[in-house]
Design a protein around this nucleic acid. Sequence first.
DNA 1: ATGAAAGCGCTAACAG
DNA 2: CTGTTAGCGCTTTCAT
Lengths: 346, 346
Amino acid sequence: MKLIKPTIKEVAQEAGVSIATVSRVLNEKDRVKSSTRQKVEEMIHKLNFQPDQNARNMIKKETKTIGIIIPELSNEYWSQLVDVLQDNFWKMGYMLIVGSIDRSLEKEQAFVKSFIERRVDGIIFGSSLTPRSNTDNHIFNLVKQYGIPIVSLDPAFREMNCVLGDHVQGASDGAEHLIRLGHRKIAFIGGPTAPDSRELGFRNAFMLNRLIVDESLIRRSDSSATFQFGYQTTIDMISGGSIFTAIFCYNDATAFGALKALAEKGVRVPEDIAIVGYDDVQMASLFKPALTTVRQPIHEVGEALAKLLIDTIEAGSNGVREVPPKNISFKMQLIVRESCGSQLEN
Amino acid sequence: MKLIKPTIKEVAQEAGVSIATVSRVLNEKDRVKSSTRQKVEEMIHKLNFQPDQNARNMIKKETKTIGIIIPELSNEYWSQLVDVLQDNFWKMGYMLIVGSIDRSLEKEQAFVKSFIERRVDGIIFGSSLTPRSNTDNHIFNLVKQYGIPIVSLDPAFREMNCVLGDHVQGASDGAEHLIRLGHRKIAFIGGPTAPDSRELGFRNAFMLNRLIVDESLIRRSDSSATFQFGYQTTIDMISGGSIFTAIFCYNDATAFGALKALAEKGVRVPEDIAIVGYDDVQMASLFKPALTTVRQPIHEVGEALAKLLIDTIEAGSNGVREVPPKNISFKMQLIVRESCGSQLEN
DNA sequence: ATGAAAGCGCTAACAG
DNA sequence: CTGTTAGCGCTTTCAT
């Protein structure tokens, strides 16, 4: 009973059968006489035998493991998404391993390589630092060469399977809300991605209303859209004498940062400056003032992501390869709360 | 160039050497002539060869993988901790697999079994639902039988390696703060663990001050200390006519819940009721009113956890087993902000 | 229904 | 310094 790591061989020996038979009771529904099966199962239980996945993986050429690349877990949006994904994959018999790349391209590549070495069955790119323009991109070619299915959350990768939020619509709705409330001088605190759909959406709302955006009020992060970035940018804009009556933020984290900066500077929200966030994380509704924000349907997105990836994986194993990439899109929803004042316009 | 999954055999063939030599350039510093090494490395690069970890794992009997069990990622405390851990393990060449068990004992056991099947090198129990009283606990016996080192964050497992916060001290400091401010009717919104050190600390502060705790004001969760639990409990207490002037919360998440309930009921914080949280997550300082809370040194705890586990693993592989379990303890720090009013007493 | 045997891709002696 | 060989623990033909 106090043995260590029993193998299939021990089980077979103790049960008086061959290892093939043990393997069969482990994997096949029938094909083994019920009396033998019982004998073997008893032994498995008695020895606490846990089959070695590594050995199994080698033969079956599948690991029931999915890797995911995200920027960081400390942003509530990502931690929620990972929770949702893990739950979905779990139900389908897959395990999730997450790589927080912490804004480092080097780390992203190292994680992906590690995923390949572990022979994961699929990879989700929640967000990627890998330059997209470069066609013969080493890291993507690598996963392609190894035949690992990918699903992306990043709109920059439309040429592969991807699930994406309609951020043009989302940001447009958010900015439109501000415009309807009478704001004209609206600052935009953006994210790291260069051609950013939220920025496009923001500009779209201005165009629709035949308004011109003040380019001096557009700020972009060159790393990540964090709390810190929102805070610092807001401080800078105010100290720099920028004039604006509202801020549209890339996500709730930057919005919280902006809120903090505003509070420190003695600026009232929404009386002096209105704020719109993006994501609708839990804290958005708890904040004082409660944050008006664009909600991402995280549960739906996570479920779609998981389903699409598994479908791709299983299609591949059936030899049905080379289906055209799928794009699944989700609409965003504006949630009006207190940070823009008057809720009449909803 | 468009092959799929090159193996060590292909590399050897193309480079005109034996597979053993390829293995050597992969694993050993010297022992191979630099001209041969170069030839092989060239081929590895050309074929984009990525060695199969599963095969390697089987032989080396190590996977460079750590599993961790946590309640959920959506609590900022846990997501931050996981980020810190992942970073530490990463530096040491290990990968982290996280299992959010979502308050399900069944899921916890399934995760642990999966960890065993994958032959992880170590497991961290961030929080466990497995009954501790039961000596011949199946799941723990299993990991023991398989010789997998464990480190726990949970004070209930002092008999194994563990890193723990001194929550008796932390909670005592928090409650003491409230008492000094003149509060006598202090509610305690606790967590799921039965003999809870925070509750002990809470009671300790009362004893030190020769005060008696009002048992009707002690509430415990039977699942998890979530935002929702803090919210509901506070609503219940107020609706139920409980009389109290302060609340001590198990963690910041429940404190945020309490804050929301209080706001809805039109109770002012800190004027009418003071609140103390626990953890000091990012949001604590941003909230209005900023939350007075007990800070857990997450970075230090994470680092200690990672280091202790790796030490144990490597000690084991050196045959130095059976060292007595180590307990590393961290002090908590009271952070006084606005939610208790007067900061004079700091 | 079951056993024998051939690997999966790699590392680790053991020779030379 | 390098090649040959024997496994690691399992699944999977191929026989019986």
